Computed example of a mutant assay.
Amino acid sequence: MSEEQIIAKGREVIKIEGNAVLGLEKSIDDSFVKAVKIILSSKGRVVFTGMGKSGLIARKIVATMNSTGTAAIFMHPTDALHGDLGMVRKDDVVIMISKSGNTEELLNLIPMFKRIDVKIIGMLGVRDSKLGRECDVCLNVSVEQEACPHDLVPTASTTASLAMGDALAIALLEMRGFTPEDFALLHPAGSLGKRLSLRIEEIMIKGKDVPVVNEETPLKDTIYEITSKRLGTTCVVDDNGLLTGIITDGDLRRLLEKTLDLKDLKASDVMTVNPKTIKPDLLASFALQEMEKYNITSLIVIDDFGIPVGIVHLHDLVKLGLQRR
């Protein structure tokens, strides 16, 4: 194949699979509503099962549902017939995925599911099939053609099943009122979970590590405070400990461009008043947004009285992976 033919083939596959997904829109009908309601009303889990590539798709949908508030597990059809059927309970809902609707391993499970009296939802490429006639609800995931040139290898059909599974998961998410905070509880690791859950008080520099000087502190001692705390900045407070300003490395450089006579200067002569601040109970991701908005590298954390209790530095937020990717 020439390079042009390779590109053409790749585009053809994307087009076929894209059309397969778009064609599913008409399949979102009363059966879809019934499937969502069955899952919502159940007190158990959603048990997915499927053979071969349908099984692999089922595993992915399980992962999506678990991460969006719907408890789900995967059960291999063959293993189910050799003991794993014990994981299915009366309150569960079973979703069977099959392109043909006649998968023998799944058909063998039907009598067992009927005996347990669980609801069965089929995601089938052929609704009028043996499995389709046994299911309580049947979701149509049929496709006009596979991307495989011989119309054999499951490609468009597995993509369609995956999209239908995502549609179910997101519909359930909406019905449950699943919030970003709920998502964060299920994703404590990773940048997304941290952005949704990590608060400023958990990651801010605090205590003796926070650089603070009084307004009357000589500039020489102020520079030492900035240097020793290694944050490139210091808070400036009045005699009551209330924040009145901030001094940064940049302020000092700009001062030196104007004069080298620093001996009579004090912190209040150099500080920038009304510095940007933040409260400790806000999300750490909000601090990053504020820094990006004002093009600054640190924020002073103050309590309800205006007393500095910490500092959040841009480098620390980046290290935590809070930046959007």
Rank of each mutant, 00 (worst) to 15 (best):
T159C: 03
S161I: 04
S161A: 15
S161C: 08
L162F: 15
L162Y: 10
A163W: 03
M164Y: 04
G165M: 08
D166P: 02
A167R: 00
A169Y: 10
A169N: 01
A169K: 06
A169F: 02
I170W: 01
I170M: 12
L173H: 07
E174N: 15
E174Q: 14
R176Q: 08
R176C: 10
G177V: 14
G177A: 14
G177S: 15
F178G: 03
T179C: 12
T179W: 04
E181N: 15
D182C: 12
F183E: 12
F183T: 11
F183W: 10
A184I: 13
L185F: 14
L186P: 07
L186F: 15
H187G: 12
H187Q: 15
H187R: 15
P188V: 05
A189C: 07
A189R: 13
A189P: 03
A189L: 09
G190T: 05
G190N: 00
S191V: 00
L192V: 13
L192C: 00
L192N: 01
G193K: 05
R195F: 01
S197P: 03
S197Q: 04
L198M: 11
L198Q: 07
L198E: 00
E201H: 11
E202P: 04
E202M: 14
I203V: 15
I203A: 13
M204R: 08
I205T: 08
I205G: 07
I205W: 06
I205V: 14
K208P: 02
K208M: 05
P211H: 01
V213D: 08
V213Y: 11
V213E: 08
V213C: 14
N214W: 01
E215K: 03
E216K: 11
E216R: 11
E216I: 11
T217P: 05
T217N: 04
T217G: 05
P218T: 15
L219T: 14
K220C: 10
D221C: 10
I223S: 02
I223R: 02
Y224L: 15
E225H: 00
I226Q: 01
T227C: 11
S228Y: 03
S228Q: 15
K229V: 04
K229H: 10
R230Y: 03
R230C: 09
G232V: 06
G232W: 08
T234I: 11
C235K: 13
V236I: 12
V237H: 08
V237P: 01
D238S: 04
D239K: 15
N240D: 13
G241I: 09
L243E: 10
L243D: 02
L243C: 05
T244A: 10
T244E: 14
T244K: 15
T244L: 06
G245A: 07
G245T: 02
I246L: 15
D249N: 06
G250L: 07
D251F: 09
D251Q: 08
L252M: 09
L252E: 02
L255N: 00
L255H: 01
E257W: 06
E257K: 13
K258I: 14
T259K: 07
L260P: 07
L260D: 14
D261T: 13
D261H: 03
L262W: 14
L262H: 10
A267L: 03
A267P: 01
A267C: 14
